[in-house]
Design a protein around this nucleic acid. Structure first.
Lengths: 240, 240
DNA sequence: ACCTGAACACCGTTCAAGT
DNA sequence: ACCTGAACACCGTTCAAGT
């Protein structure tokens, strides 16, 4: 349906040369490469098999379904996110760097990023990441209730930002073509006309940073508010 | 791949009764109903045709491709968002009500909501909505640069929140099953164990409202800051 | 253990033909 | 104008068979 590059006919399978034995890791790498190249819609087990020089069915020996393979691709994407090591930098700065690296995944892998939004995070790998992030939130002085709120808040934000930035950057070839240029913008949509220059792709980095500022300012404020309340309730010692 | 209810065999086409003539509107309504019922993955032109009592190819007389039909379904979803009429309530409250109604679309149409995140908003209908929202931001006292920033910020937020809430509520049948219950949470992932109770589905409404609080507080603050700067630069008059 | 080949029940879309 | 039927080039996945 919406192949970013027209996929064309299936590539011929290269069999002659001695093929390295198929591994789960090699399949995942090839799958991500294939999704990057032709889009998630055009990605298929048959196409991936052809790219690897095997029949599609050989893949089922390593992954029991396409869904399981996509979960593995999702975890491959997660490897590109970076959380700086604990202790060296401020915990809030660690979280900010993580969110910035997360958004870069969307820019590097526009067709695959949706797997991080779409597929449920309930593999062991994602729980390790959760633990690290919640640890940073606790290090920053947030209690579990506030950690839960901000965990969701910046999770929503970074997921939505990735998806929206992708949509802004890439035209979908089968979408209804209207676009800014097809009608006199300032006449019918004066507000859109006034704001549009600020929404160009060149400004998306600054806009993303601004949203992070808002979120991290609120985290600092809420943390100080909560610790102030604790101090007022029992001055001189910290319950919990 | 990930049909929410197993779609089963295609339903038999009901031809005998005098079928009402096919209209674009009836097709869109049926398409949304079908997506709600079987999921976007299992939704097909053939299945939709069968539900409407026609051959799949009859649909191509009203929509030139599946992509165009999905754009129309996206606009149908947008009709369920509500922006209260101008003038009666505070502009920021109007925006907040809009965002709350937008999120409700995700809860009502978990399989279809992704169309609002995935497909580019460049139809005329979406420009009318943009204009109304940017008008409300201007009414609230934000200049175009700040309007652009907050427009993206809450857009990212509400899109990401809808997708994440859907993922939290619905199990994907083909995902790798790990889940909280399969290992001793508090031993290996103590922070996850401490925060998990606050992340239950029952708390998602409050968490969403908290994020909106953060965003709207920041809007008020930034607006006042900007208008204060204007006053300082030229006291006594407001250079628009 | 690892891979192939045929088969099943599907896809979106084209095209010529019917009314 | 509106719809059908056959066809084309694909899907994911099953199963029995090969090495």
């Amino acid at each position: 349906m919406k192949p970013s590059a027209k996929p064309g006919p299936l590539p011929a399978r290269r069999r002659s040369a001695a093929r390295p034995p198929l591994t789960a890791e090699a399949i995942v790498d090839a799958a991500l490469g294939e999704i990057d190249a032709v889009g998630l819609e055009a990605f298929s087990m048959r196409r991936l098999g052809a790219a690897l020089g095997v029949e599609a069915m050989a893949l089922y020996h390593h992954f029991r379904s396409k869904g399981r393979l996509l979960d593995a691709v999702m975890e491959r994407l997660l490897d590109e996110a970076e959380l700086p090591p604990r202790g060296e930098v401020d915990p809030l700065l660690r979280l900010r760097r993580f969110l910035e690296s997360y958004r870069k995944i969307a820019i590097r892998h526009p067709h695959a990023f949706i797997l991080l939004v779409n597929r449920r995070f309930n593999t062991e790998r994602t729980f390790v990441l959760y633990e690290q992030i919640l640890e940073a939130l606790a290090d920053a002085g947030l209690d579990p209730a506030l950690s839960a709120r901000f965990f969701r808040l910046f999770g929503y934000y970074v997921g939505g930002a990735g998806m929206a930035d992708i949509a802004s950057r890439a035209q979908q070839p089968d979408a209804t073509p209207v676009g800014l240029e097809h009608f006199t913008l300032n006449e019918r949509f004066p507000r859109v006309g006034a704001v549009a220059p600020h929404l160009r792709v060149a400004n998306l980095d600054a806009i993303f940073a601004f949203g992070l500022d808002v979120i991290f300012d609120a985290m600092r404020r809420e943390r100080n508010k909560a610790s102030g309340e604790r101090l007022r309730r029992s001055p001189g010692r910290d319950p919990s």
